Simulated scan of single mutants.
Amino acid sequence: MTADAPTILATSGGIVPGTRIRWELGPLTEYAIELAGVDGRRPKVCFLATALGDDATTINQFYAAAQQRGLDPSHLRTFGMPNVDDVTAHLLEQDVVWVWGGSVAGLLAMWHLHGFDDAMRTAWQAGVVLTGVSAGSICWHVGGTTDSFGPELRPITNGLGLVPFSNGVHYDSEEQRRPLFQSLIADGTLPAGYATDDGVGLLYRGTEFVEAVSEKDDKGAYFVERDTSGAGNTAIETRIDPRRL
């Protein structure tokens, strides 16, 4: 079973603190599974921690959370070699692909090196739901803001571009995010795009934005576009009130 259209849920969240394990699936990730329309069997969820260098602890934490939730879990690794022979075939067998945060620049470099980028596009077109947090949100877009290069945030502009927008994550919790995202859109470095406070996700069907959803109260999403009405390079930010999951 796959979604009835190419589907992305790009988030600044998706997990909650666990009771007996480190973390559990949050409402955003549960919503991504719901979007896949799985019925009568365990949902197949493939996890990627490429942005953390395929950190073994994080992957093990995913398997603990997946076991508790009753998923049919798998993971894809790039370091020190891919752990499956045919990445595209593996992704096409999944209901949901879940991408973790970390270095989006490193993630994109490794995906391109191993052909994961093309495999992701094929899976997306086939209706496999793509979701992720932070780097796992920016990657589906044209680009965004990143700390991949150091504590001073910089633009990233070589995202997969499955949707034709830029993406701002952690919009309310990291003080550099909002002003840089706006300035990069204002000067044309990034196209218009959507940003999320922590706990908020963006749902796309095909290449169209559908809605913002939230697993926390009093959070927002935002559409930021270049203001072409004046002489200067400025941006216009419009708040989108998310639907509470």
Rank of each mutant, 00 (worst) to 15 (best):
P43M: 05
P164R: 07
L184P: 06
G159W: 15
A3R: 04
Q94E: 10
P164L: 11
D218C: 10
T7S: 08
R121H: 09
G199I: 04
S166Y: 12
S103T: 04
A126N: 09
L162A: 05
H112Y: 14
P242G: 04
R244W: 03
G37C: 04
L9M: 01
P17H: 07
P27F: 00
T234R: 14
D147K: 08
K44D: 06
W23V: 03
E225C: 09
L153P: 12
F209T: 06
R69S: 03
D227S: 03
P82Y: 07
E175V: 13
P191D: 01
E208T: 13
A135L: 02
A66S: 03
R154E: 15
I236V: 15
T29H: 11
L48P: 05
G102S: 08
E211P: 00
G188L: 03
E174H: 12
R154A: 15
G193D: 11
D54N: 10
W100Y: 15
S183K: 13
D117H: 09
V210K: 01
T146W: 02
S74Q: 11
P191V: 02
D217R: 14
T7G: 02
P155V: 06
F62I: 05
T58V: 12
E152L: 14
T234N: 10
A49R: 13
D147E: 14
T57L: 09
A135F: 04
F165I: 12
G53C: 07
L28W: 01
G201E: 05
S214E: 00
L153E: 08
G201Q: 04
D227H: 00
V224G: 05
T238W: 03
P164S: 09
V210Q: 11
R205N: 12
P27R: 09
A212K: 05
A51L: 09
I33V: 14
A119C: 06
D198A: 11
T228H: 11
F165A: 09
V97M: 01
N233K: 10
G206W: 11
V224F: 05
V45P: 04
R77E: 11
S183L: 08
Y31I: 01
T146K: 04
A195N: 07
Q61C: 12
G18N: 00
D95Q: 01
G206T: 13
P17M: 06
A221Y: 14
P17W: 08
I185K: 05
R177G: 05
D95A: 01
